[in-house]
């Protein structure tokens, strides 16, 4: 009977020791994890710099966990503090990562500003070159410097005979004109329509205006603001040559595009 009692007591003791061991193993493991996590951040100068408070708390809670682990019956509390310590270490690490990616973002932002500046300079230079080229092209397409400023003449062949529609052959001219206006945003144009003297004067006046209007419309379709486009019709007035011959009449049927200077100022209209 005594023996049985002893062996029962022994068994009970063994069980309690084993469970004690198991729980102390998990506690030791938790402590070990917290310790090595803390060791990995405390030597990282980036972490120390960006999250000193969390590093300190990771240390304090780790100390507390170790202290509690040495007390009998406090292993649960020890694990709790080991958990807190791990979390403080993790948070400190995240803050360091955040800071380094924010620093990186600041650097990249500076790089972007430098690149944008470089690009603007390059584009400006290229626009200037393009402007020179386009101006040349406009001169080739019948633009000349006159006492009324820069004037571009769109010949009769660019229109359907007797009508105001622009022919497809006018596309290149109108496109160049639009490009020129796009890179010279302060320049405006006065679009003036003219006819020969054959036929009814009123009809000629209205046709000249409609042809000028057709050019303005084509330009505004290409994105030029209407405020930069004035439209006038002069009908039979101001012929460039005699209306006696067919050739002369064809020359008189025209649209003239008068450019303002670079500040938007015109020589007054006729």
């Amino acid at each position: 009977m005594m023996r049985l009692a002893f062996s029962l007591a022994g068994l009970a003791l063994m069980i309690s020791l084993t469970t004690g061991c198991a729980s102390s193993t998990t506690t030791q493991q938790a402590l070990q994890d917290a310790k090595s996590r803390y060791a990995s951040i405390k030597t990282d100068s980036e972490v120390l710099r960006s999250a000193p408070k969390d590093v300190r708390r990771a240390e304090e809670t780790l100390d507390k966990a170790e202290q509690l682990a040495s007390y009998w019956g406090s292993s649960k509390d020890a694990r709790h503090f080991a958990y807190l310590s791990q979390r403080y270490s993790d948070i400190a690490q995240e803050h360091a990562n955040l800071r380094s990616s924010q620093d990186k973002a600041t650097q990249l932002q500076l790089q972007i500003e430098r690149l944008q500046l470089k690009l603007r300079e390059k584009e400006l230079r290229s626009a200037r070159e393009r402007n020179v080229w386009l101006t040349d092209q406009l001169f080739n397409l019948g633009t000349s410097q006159t006492e009324r400023g820069l004037v571009m003449t769109l010949g009769d062949v660019l229109f359907a005979p007797g009508r105001s529609q622009l022919n497809p052959t006018a596309n290149e001219t109108v496109l160049k004109l639009a490009q020129f206006l796009q890179i010279n945003p302060k320049r405006e144009v006065r679009i003036e329509g003219y006819t020969d003297d054959s036929g009814d004067g009123d009809r000629n006046l209205s046709l000249s205006r409609q042809r000028a209007q057709a050019v303005a419309k084509a330009l505004s379709t290409l994105g030029i603001e209407e405020g930069r486009l004035q439209v006038l019709g002069y009908g039979e007035d101001y012929p460039v040559t005699s209306n006696e011959t067919a050739e002369g009449r064809a020359k008189n049927r025209r649209v003239e595009v008068v450019f303002s200077d670079e500040n938007g100022d015109f020589v007054p209209a006729r």
Binding site: H80, Y83, R87, D90, I91, E94, N97, S101, A105
Partner: peptide, 23 residues
């Protein structure tokens, strides 16, 4: 106490992700 640190860690992770996306 644990919830406080868990949620603070979650917040730090989200901020980090955002910053990384920005980069």
């Amino acid at each position: 106490e644990q919830a406080e640190l868990d949620v603070r860690l979650a917040e730090a992770r989200v901020l980090n992700n955002k910053s990384q996306t920005h980069v």
